[in-house]
Each structure stands twice: as structure tokens, then as C-alpha cells.
Write a protein that binds this DNA or RNA. Structure first.
Length: 376
RNA sequence: GGGCGGUUACCAGAGUGGCCAAAUGGGGCAGACUGUAAAUCUGCUGGUUUUUACCUUCGGAGGUUCGAAUCCUUCACCGCCCA
């Protein structure tokens, strides 16, 4: 994987760049749709390519390991072959599931013991076997196995957790360097900065990771319950230290405003379930603000979903029609909302890129943060 | 003409003397959702009130009772059966 920095904004830390993988290039800043179980929910590949302009999607190690399972993925020849997506894929390591499935897992020095949320069976993830699994899945970008502590963790827990994540990083990186991809194309490995909301821990984490010299670096453990201002502060602290010539990936974030603030602070890559999950729950993000499509006020609004929206569905369907679909529990509602939201998110990051290159990012961003946060 | 059953909030439907402004489901109105255990979850849904509380309500009218959606009388309407 290569990264070329095209331009750094003069007034802010925003950057425009280009990631090259064996499955194609990615223009940054970029939003990456989440496809946890080998599928971006309610959206198929033609739509991802043509309507959404997705350049890279995510998969999840924990979920794919449980279903369809490694034997199937290996027989398929990797995830790209299995789901038909021939552009880049990034897999999360399962570190987030250590956090979100905390009720059914046990943390140990060696790794994390899980119970499957599907059938209750016991499984053990280590920094090493998570690398092995991601080799079998065959993602272009693989992630280190980390612990993602809750946003309200106290300092002592955060410190202990970070030190575990760092030991796990060394073990994972060692395994990654000792092994090779199974399908003939290159894979890369991103470490993850942790440290909760404590600047000194974040700094220490970023320094530790910067020394590893990986192709890209991730910031994790944010947007997990801490105040938004803390999140922005942590991004600033970390990005002062992370190498500028490597892409920076802010994991799991966030709202359109969150993404714009993070781009301003030098982040290049984003993923979040919000456009798809909230979309399925009736929330639409647009460049003029947020709409709850179940609200009655749309019932007789026959104007297009978004007249100048990023996707064709915005003009094909009216607000009244989409509301009707949601209220009637029609599956088409989930499809339209997911396509719309993902297209908007990808558009937002690519539009940010254009403004970085044009030199007016700061002004554009200030206006956009207001607009996208409005409740319509 | 006779017999039986029924009429409860927006809809369906429980409740058969006080714990009933009335279960439950649907519908309606709003909110939440950030590396997806999520086409999910939460709240409200007679009126006034922050709560307590009070007022109005269970087809209509009248009655019994300390007290009625619940018991009695009667009227209206609906359904089924017999003529």
C-alpha cells in the first residue's frame, strides 16, 4: 500500500491524498461504508459503485470468522471473491467487539475469550490469530487487535488497557511481518492509538505507534461516550505526533459534523455505521441538515428527497413517498435511505477534498458544519 | 313476530362492583442510534396540571349502591338463528 499526500491545507491541518492498493486507489479524505458481515446492509455492489461512489468498504473479523467462517472464506478465495467487491477492503480486527460485546467476553493477557452472540459457543482471539484470520479474509488493510475501553474509563484503567493494547500490537505486528497474503496481492497492517480521553496516554500511544513505521495509523477508542470536545482534543494531540506521510484513520466516527472537524484536524479515513443504521431507522443526512423521515411533516411533501443530492435516488423519489415506505415498513425504504446516506457521506468527504485542493476548506467547512447539523 | 349474542379510547380487543383513565396489539406523535448482537430501542398517545391531584369517558336515558365500564329497567343500533 502506498500513500501520496497531494496537498496540506495552509490554514488547517486538512489533507488531500491518495492511497494505492492492489485493488485500486482511494482519494482521501474518504468515508468507507461499513459491511460488517460481507455486506453493506441493504445495498448491493452496483449501487455502491454507481450511486454511492464507494472506493473502499469494511468487513469485520469477528463477524466473518463466526459466519460464514474461515473455511468458506478460504474456499471462496477471500472476501473479495466471496462478495464480489473488487475494490479495496479494510477489516476491523474485532477489537471493537471486545468493547461492544463486553458482557460475553473475558479479557486476558493472552487475548480475549468470546462467546459467540449467535450460538453461545466459546472462541479465543489473540493478536496473532486475528492477523491469521485477516490473512484468510484477505483484506487490503488489516487492523491490529486492540482493546477499545469505554469513554468514561478512569485513568488507571485507561493506562492498563493501553499497555495491553501496545503489547498486543507488538505481537500482532510480529505475526503480520512473519506471514504473507494468501491470494497474491499485498495486505497492510494498521496499528491503533488508544488512551481514552487522557492527553498524556494518547501522546504516549501515538509515539509508540509512530515508531513502528506502518503504512497507515488508526485512532480508536473515540466516540464511545466521551464528550465531543474531548474527542476533538484527542485527535489534535494524536495528529501532532502521527507521521504526516501516512494516512490516518479515525475509527467509527461519526456524524457529518464530526467528520468535518476531524478532517480539519488532519484525519484521512473514516468509517461509521451511522449512515446505514440510522438510515434504516428513518434518519436522513443531507447537506442542509437531518430529516426524520417518519415525521408527519413529510407526509405530503412531494419534493425530491434532496434536489441536488449526491445520488440518483434523491431525485427519483419524493420525501412523501419515502415517508410512506418507512411508515409501511417497506424494504425499499431501507435501501433508499442507505443509498442516500452513504452517497452523502462519500460526497461530503470528497467535497472536502475538493475544497482542500482549492484552498478554501476552512470557510467551506465552517458553513457546512452548521448546515449538516440542522434539524429539518 | 320470537330467541340468543353484542355495542369499551383512532382501530381491534381485554376488563363483569372499589386496586380503572381502563390490559394488550395495531395505528399515531416524537426521540435515540458513532471501528453494526440494531429493518432496532425508548417515551408519549381523554382533558387541565411539573408531580400529587382533579375533571370528563366505556351506545343513549334512568335506576340500585357509600361506590358502576361492570348489577337492574328501558330505548337505539349491529350480528346470528327460528318464523
Amino acid at each position: 500500500m502506498d500513500f501520496k499526500l497531494h496537498h496540506t491545507d495552509t490554514k488547517t491541518n486538512a489533507r488531500a491524498g491518495e492511497i494505492t492498493t492492489d485493488h485500486g486507489t482511494i482519494l482521501t479524505p474518504i468515508f468507507m461504508p461499513v459491511g460488517t458481515v460481507a455486506s453493506v446492509k441493504a445495498v448491493h455492489i452496483q449501487e455502491l459503485k454507481n450511486d454511492i461512489n464507494a472506493q473502499i468498504i469494511l468487513g469485520n473479523t469477528y463477524h466473518l470468522y463466526l459466519r460464514p467462517g474461515l473455511d468458506i472464506l478460504e474456499k471462496a478465495g477471500g472476501l473479495h471473491k466471496f462478495n464480489g467487491w473488487d475494490r479495496p477492503i479494510l477489516t476491523d480486527s474485532g477489537g471493537f467487539q471486545v468493547f461492544s460485546l463486553s458482557a460475553i467476553r473475558k479479557l486476558k493477557e493472552e487475548g480475549a475469550e468470546f462467546r459467540s452472540h449467535i450460538d453461545g459457543s466459546k472462541h479465543f482471539f489473540t493478536p496473532e490469530n486475528v492477523v491469521d484470520i485477516q490473512r484468510i479474509i484477505g483484506a487490503d488493510i488489516t487492523m491490529a487487535f486492540d482493546e477499545c475501553p469505554p469513554g468514561d474509563s478512569d485513568y488507571n484503567y485507561a493506562k492498563k488497557s493501553l499497555e495491553l493494547t501496545q503489547r498486543w500490537l507488538d505481537r500482532g505486528l510480529k505475526r503480520f511481518n512473519e506471514t504473507e497474503g494468501k491470494y497474491g496481492y499485498r495486505q497492510t497492517f494498521f496499528p491503533i492509538v488508544q488512551g481514552c480521553v487522557y492527553p498524556d496516554l494518547r501522546r504516549r500511544a501515538a509515539e509508540y505507534i509512530a515508531e513502528k513505521g506502518c503504512d497507515g495509523n488508526a485512532i480508536g477508542g473515540l466516540a464511545v461516550g466521551e464528550p465531543t470536545d474531548k474527542m476533538y482534543e484527542m485527535i489534535e494531540v494524536v495528529n501532532e505526533i502521527l507521521p504526516t506521510d501516512k494516512p490516518r484513520y479515525l475509527m467509527g466516527v461519526g456524524t457529518p459534523a464530526n467528520i468535518l472537524e476531524a478532517i480539519e484536524r488532519g484525519v484521512d479515513m473514516f468509517d461509521c455505521v451511522m449512515p446505514t443504521r440510522n438510515g434504516r431507522n428513518g434518519m436522513l443526512f443531507t447537506k442542509n441538515g437531518i430529516m426524520n423521515m417518519r415525521n408527519k411533516k413529510w407526509a405530503d411533501d412531494f419534493s425530491p428527497i434532496e434536489i441536488d443530492g449526491a445520488s440518483e435516488v434523491d431525485r427519483l423519489y419524493s420525501k412523501a413517498y419515502l415517508r410512506h415506505l418507512f411508515v409501511s415498513n417497506e424494504l425499499l425504504a431501507l435501501q433508499i435511505a442507505s443509498i442516500h446516506n452513504l452517497a452523502f457521506y462519500v460526497w461530503l468527504t470528497q467535497e472536502a477534498r475538493h475544497h482542500i485542493l482549492a484552498g478554501d476548506f476552512a470557510e467551506w467547512k465552517r458553513v457546512m458544519v452548521q448546515r449538516v447539523s440542522t434539524r429539518l
